[in-house]
Simulated assay, not measured.
Amino acid sequence: MAPATLTITPRLRRQLGEWLQEDLGRGDLTAPALQARRGQAHWVAKADGVFCGGVLIEPLLRELQPPDGGCRLHRLVVDGARVRAGDRLVELEGPASVLVALERTALNLAMRLSGIASATAALVAELEGTGVVLADTRKTTPGLRELEKYAVRCGGGLNHRMGLDDAAMLKENHLAWAGGVVQAMAAVRAQAPWPTRVIVEAETAEEALSAVAAGADGVLLDEFTPVELMGLVPQLREQARHRPSAAPVVLEASGIQPAQLGAYAATGIDLISTSAPVTRSSWLDLSMRFSGLAVA
């Protein structure tokens, strides 16, 4: 799998500046103690896991450092790499006041993202060899979606929709208010630009079969048990073969317990989507340690 990448967009750069300002407020009251010295520091992992967030250090530094007093950054570990407790991750040199101002915001982001990447990697490892892909959901922290989904990619997972404009997913409320699967899909197909993928969330076997027959590109099978899916998945595959276009359908299980990943993977589905790496993960403990004064 290719390494995950993250584009530092103008919007993300503005957010980084705002997060730094949240911590700095009217200015760091400890800065006079540093006496304009240049310092050396490094990041260290305090637990095993998958590192994520190093890509944010440089743009954060750009928001902090004065034009005439640059910092030197050496990333020893790339995002998505497995680390062990005690590993050095990053080395920094620059104005001590800048390193102190960077520390909390940068580490908080990296610890949060590394926790998500680590939790994702653990689940992906359980699916290895099954052919089933692990995907995330839109259950993300407001303002952090882009970064949390990047962390999922660093852990080896697949991003589901970034937002409501990526694909049309018809959920239970849509189906109820539109009058059913067929009516909801017809309304979306009539208005959505081509090619728009239409996914239907099904809570019953009847809804799932109706969605496939109506031409859904994907069916999200919500809160079905592995036993139920063992019988239903072959029916859905057969139904798809009889569609006029004979287009394949992506079958996705959601609303599952992570402890049952293996049982779900054995049912013949294509995809498992879960919010667990984002909503249930713990931060990976990281620390910045000062190594001394920089040599002039």
Score class of each variant (00 low, 15 high):
A192K: 07
V219Q: 01
Q40Y: 03
P234Q: 07
V50L: 02
G262Q: 15
V124K: 07
D166N: 08
L236S: 01
E172Q: 15
Q15D: 15
S114L: 03
Q35Y: 09
S282R: 14
H74F: 02
M288K: 03
H160E: 07
A240S: 10
A190G: 12
G163M: 05
T204L: 04
Q260K: 06
R26H: 12
V198T: 14
E148Q: 15
S210T: 05
V219T: 04
A176G: 02
A205K: 07
A119G: 04
H42M: 10
A208G: 02
S275G: 15
A36E: 14
L147N: 04
R62A: 15
T137G: 09
P248Y: 04
R243I: 01
A36F: 10
I8C: 06
E58T: 09
E223H: 13
T30V: 11
Q65C: 08
S254N: 08
L12Q: 10
A31G: 09
S210M: 10
S118R: 03
L175M: 10
W283M: 13
L64V: 08
R197G: 09
L123M: 15
V133I: 14
K139Y: 06
L271M: 11
K139H: 05
L284F: 04
E22R: 04
A135E: 03
R14C: 06
D270A: 02
G129Q: 08
I199S: 08
R112G: 02
T5P: 02
F224P: 00
L236G: 03
S287D: 14
R161I: 02
E63G: 08
Q183C: 01
T204S: 14
V132Q: 06
R104M: 02
A213S: 13
L12D: 05
P244V: 07
L286G: 00
H242T: 12
C154D: 01
Q40N: 11
G115K: 00
N108K: 04
G255S: 10
H42C: 13
Q65G: 07
E103N: 12
R145Q: 12
H242K: 10
L284R: 05
M1D: 12
L73Y: 00
E128C: 06
L6E: 03
P10V: 06
A151S: 10
D136T: 06
E223P: 00
R153H: 07
L24E: 10
T7Y: 07
R62Q: 15
S97P: 03
R153T: 09
H242N: 08
A296Q: 14
R38L: 12
A246Y: 06
F224T: 02
S97F: 05
A121I: 01
E252Y: 05
V90Y: 01
P244G: 06
R72G: 09
V250W: 07
Q239S: 13
V219R: 00
G215D: 08
T7W: 02
T30S: 15
S273P: 01
P67L: 11
G129Y: 05
D217K: 03
H174S: 06
L236R: 13
A247V: 01
D270V: 02
M1P: 11
W283Y: 01
R104Y: 12
V198K: 05
R237N: 10
F290L: 08
R38T: 11
